[in-house]
Simulated scan of single mutants.
Amino acid sequence: MKIGELSRATGVSVRLLRYYEEQELLSSHRTPGGHRTYAADAPQVVHRIRVLLDAGLPTRVIREVLPCVHGDGVRVDACMADHLRDQLRGIDQRIAELRDTRSSLAAILATTERLTERPATERAGLTPTA
């Protein structure tokens, strides 16, 4: 299967397929004319890559996990479970950090909005004279 055929079969751009090769997620062979050809199971491999990317895994982790992925990409050998748990913990930590960041930003915005609702003289620390 040529790269254009693989692109059409998977809905993944030729450029992205080349990137997967650069990241050692997908392999091809070269014809004597220099064209890339892929094995018959390449569409399934691309699907698995997409499933793992959608799960938030970086390509360096996918490279390690991919040989242990089976079927439609949602079943991985048990030996990789700890690795995936580590990735999940990292995602949970990033979510917690984002929640903290969001709370800080919301507090700044709330203070800003409270201050802008007050008359300009109060914001400047002046009291109106009668």
Rank of each mutant, 00 (worst) to 15 (best):
R48M: 07
V45A: 03
G90W: 09
D92V: 01
G33S: 15
C68Y: 13
D86R: 12
T112E: 05
M80N: 01
V65K: 02
D100S: 14
I49R: 02
L88R: 14
S104G: 15
G71P: 09
D86S: 11
R36P: 04
Y38Q: 04
T31V: 09
R85G: 01
G33T: 14
H47P: 02
C79D: 13
A78L: 14
E64S: 11
R30I: 01
L105K: 02
L98K: 12
R75L: 13
G33C: 07
H83L: 15
S28Q: 07
I49W: 04
G33V: 07
D82G: 15
G34N: 10
D82L: 11
L25Q: 08
S103G: 11
L109E: 15
R60N: 14
Q44Y: 00
D77F: 04
R60Y: 10
R89M: 09
C68M: 06
R30F: 04
A106D: 15
D54P: 01
A106T: 12
G73C: 09
R63W: 03
D100T: 14
G56S: 07
L105Q: 11
L57W: 07
G73L: 10
A110T: 14
A107P: 00
I108T: 13
A96G: 06
L53R: 15
A40K: 10
T37N: 07
I95C: 05
L52K: 08
T59H: 03
I49H: 04
L98V: 03
R114Y: 03
V46L: 06
S103C: 05
C79W: 01
V51I: 15
